[in-house]
Design a binder for these strands. Sequence first.
DNA 1: CGGATTTGTTTATTGGTTGAATTATTTGAG
DNA 2: CTCAAATAATTCAACCAATAAACAAATCCG
Lengths: 382, 382
Amino acid sequence: MTASSAPVRQASVRAHNLALVLQTVANSTDPISRAAVAAATGLTRATVSALVDDLIAGSLLTEVDPAPRNGAGRPAAGLRTTPDGPAGLGLEINVDYRAACVVDLTGAVRHRLVEPGDQRPVDTATALAGLARLARRARDLAEGEGLTLAGAALAVPGLVAADGIVRVAPNLGWQDVTVGDLVDGLPVTVDNEANLAALSELGSGGLPPSFVYISGEIGIGAGIVLDGALFRGVRGWSGEIGHIAIDPDGPACRCGARGCLEQYAGQEAMLRTAGVAAVTDLAGADLTVAGRALGTAIATVVNLLDVDTVVLGGIYAPLLPRLRDAIAGEIERRVLTADWSPVTLRAATFGPDAAMRGAAGAVIRTVLDDPAGWLARSRAGR
Amino acid sequence: MTASSAPVRQASVRAHNLALVLQTVANSTDPISRAAVAAATGLTRATVSALVDDLIAGSLLTEVDPAPRNGAGRPAAGLRTTPDGPAGLGLEINVDYRAACVVDLTGAVRHRLVEPGDQRPVDTATALAGLARLARRARDLAEGEGLTLAGAALAVPGLVAADGIVRVAPNLGWQDVTVGDLVDGLPVTVDNEANLAALSELGSGGLPPSFVYISGEIGIGAGIVLDGALFRGVRGWSGEIGHIAIDPDGPACRCGARGCLEQYAGQEAMLRTAGVAAVTDLAGADLTVAGRALGTAIATVVNLLDVDTVVLGGIYAPLLPRLRDAIAGEIERRVLTADWSPVTLRAATFGPDAAMRGAAGAVIRTVLDDPAGWLARSRAGR
DNA sequence: CGGATTTGTTTATTGGTTGAATTATTTGAG
DNA sequence: CTCAAATAATTCAACCAATAAACAAATCCG
């Protein structure tokens, strides 16, 4: 059944159009008038006005001075998303730091807290307690500025099941961890680091609605974005690109198989191959082996999913100039359709903050996607 | 922007609920009452009655004797999709035959025409003319029974761009072919054979909403179904699994690369490895090499997409018993999450007719997905 | 035979968009 | 300086579709 098996009533019409108007305003770089929103969406000006009234009353939009216009006519009132409305709390825990940030509806990062420190020796409960402390600090900062947190999202370097339980995060030593209540009462969703980083790239603009983000860290993960939405797979662990087979008889991998991509293009493999100790030293090294393996893997992804853009993040982003030729060569050779449709390789725009920003962005996206729900919840007092 | 950038008016509400009711009836095995539809959809009985009236007037539904029920109460009137309403024309052209079938709204195959014969020596125009002749014969048969063709779909063993142009079908010798008007005025969509075969499996029921169908013919293709819908990729050529790399230094492939899956598990490679001449002889051969390669490829797909069901079609379907161990072994070894979430391997239920049936099914699916549009078009006379 | 029960229809109400008319505010021409 | 033209936003009656509740129809069971 394709017709999303839920009945539609008039209230859903309003909910949909409310989201449509809000997103039209949010996606516009300049302040935009009600009339322009009407033209962009296909709704009438009357309807847009009514919807905008609701959004302003619920402090999701504000009127600002419009972009100056020339010619006759009554000047428009500009609309923008409010910086004072709901905000998203983005959290990240990784091998050598934990971090939090608060992003408002306009997309601006209002606060950013980073606590370096090896998280590995710490046991899970202590790690979660530290994360909760950090999250509460961020919440206090946000509420001190009059922001209302709409929720929190946590980026984890591991496999996260659809129900939010962390099945395994090898580099943190986590196994079957339920994150639970970090900040009293605030709903927390948990997701894979690469997935959330992909979302942050999507939000950065300038990318097509379908692309694959590849995150190079100790492990290698991919966030798959199809038609503007994250593709999580049936159970939540799509994008495990680090363990696709490059050579069936290649070196043994910690996963038990042989010749996984990670054994060629993972951080440790690259350091070993280059014979250097620090990631920064890779900038001068010969990365052909890693680049070809990565290119083979990307060719596989493109053959399967027919995406035309691949974003390289994590340690790959700064190394892309040295990796590009080897990757592009394999794509050229192995992608069946490379002749008609070139594949664009891009370095990620956000550095190490990508996952954390994506997490915060995922929260504000829930508001942008369902403003009616948010208005109802915030009217119900909270 | 996620809110599918189209405004919603009242008419869209009706269109959506019309589709919801129609699909609820279509998905029910037994005749179903208006009250049961209301219970299943969450609409009120009054609304369902009004919608059903429209669907009956437009001859998409008919009243039939209900499934017998015990207990008190007024007996229900049963609802079924009509066998006399719109029908879909499914077409297929392949290396050694062309075929057509007509499927009605109930899913029954009303007519089936197969013309064996090598299509390769024939030039494109002649091949299309032959296809058009076949299609018109099928149409005449359908119209002779009072059916109205809602459209046609053509399955092609090759790469089909989103605009319906066949970029290349190597085994037919086609290149940049526009199919155009086969049956005067009837809209024809063109799609890849594996994609349409996957749709026919989806329609057969008993499958989860997300799975991958792998078609083994001369080439190897995959149809990717995510959440009940075919995933076609950005430009239309997703699922090119035949050319993902199994061994970067393997045998040269006709695509120019080395070690593609097709060189291990394609029909010709399997015959060569087994040292037999006919596909039927493979049933007694050792297929470990092909099975392991296929298993490696499937493991890659599962790692990337996190699907839990893989359907094997084409020549793989009858060979699955001999392939299964090798495939399952590679999946076990290479799928990171194999421990928690087993991958189900299935043989396809439809044999060589799969693509053709899927094509016809794709047409009737357009009616099931948008009955309002169909009613408007058929009211406008046609 | 009559109450209970379930199906299906009728009718008034509600909610949300539309379209036309109206008001508001500017530019520019005479 | 005033008035017409132009553009923005609001108001209001009309319309459409779903809902809720009452009602009619048809059966079962005691």
